[in-house]
Nucleic acid binder design. Structure first.
Lengths: 112, 112
DNA sequence: ACTAAACTTCGACAAGTATCGAACTAAGGA
DNA sequence: TCCTTAGTTCGATACTTGTCGAAGTTTAGT
């Protein structure tokens, strides 16, 4: 489900509030590192909690050296900004980047 | 409007610190409004202090409804981030957008 | 039911940011 | 020289953000 337009035609224009949230979310080195980590799929492959293109919060915690509550905070900022999606499965939460959203932000910057 | 397809060679990759400064600068509605205002050339034309593609600080102050010192603060954030350039002429300072810098930030976001 | 694991929410504190008014600097006139 | 105009710098205050540890929630296993 929800694979949809891989051809990424129109990333859908953002309103000012959405752009603001996205840029505030991106204006943090830790959160950009999270996005890069998700984008790289972290694919140290068959670990217990991560599938091929998703990463669980515990991996992020380990990777960044931050406690779980801090990671949770960053993830909710990214989620609220529409830059990542979360999928819960059992006790784990798998995150992945929403590439179209990043593309939309990039497009908005170019039209500033 | 919009001069469009400039050959946009290579906007030059940003290092992490430059990207951080640029995104922090962009993560403010007031500063984005400043960039839009500069980009539109504000060209209410032949006013006393603004040339065709540049805007003086006093115009920004008026446009945003902020006192001069606050505008000065925002402009130095934008300057330090490399997103605008300033040219002093007499008692006025003319600002203009550095479009390549915005393009570089957009490109970095797309490669996150 | 009890326990453990994986998150999230809450409360607190430190650090950073936005804004103002006041004081300062620089440039052009009268 | 004195005065005015355009901006910058400084100091204060209010707001926002990043981070932690502690407590709460949800899910799975025994």
């Amino acid at each position: 489900m929800a694979v949809m337009t891989r051809n990424a035609p129109a990333p859908a224009a953002l309103d000012e509030a959405a752009l603001d949230a996205a840029l505030k979310a991106l204006a943090s080195a830790q959160r950009r590192e999270i996005l890069r980590f998700l984008a790289s799929r972290a694919a140290e492959s068959g670990k217990t909690c991560c599938t091929q293109d998703e990463v669980c919060a515990c991996k992020l915690s380990e990777h960044l050296g931050l406690v779980a509550s801090t990671v949770s905070h960053h993830m909710s900022v990214l989620k609220d900004a529409g830059l990542v999606s979360a999928r819960k499965d059992g006790t784990w939460v798998y995150y992945s980047v929403i590439r179209d959203a990043l593309a939309a932000v990039a497009a908005e910057i170019n039209t500033l």
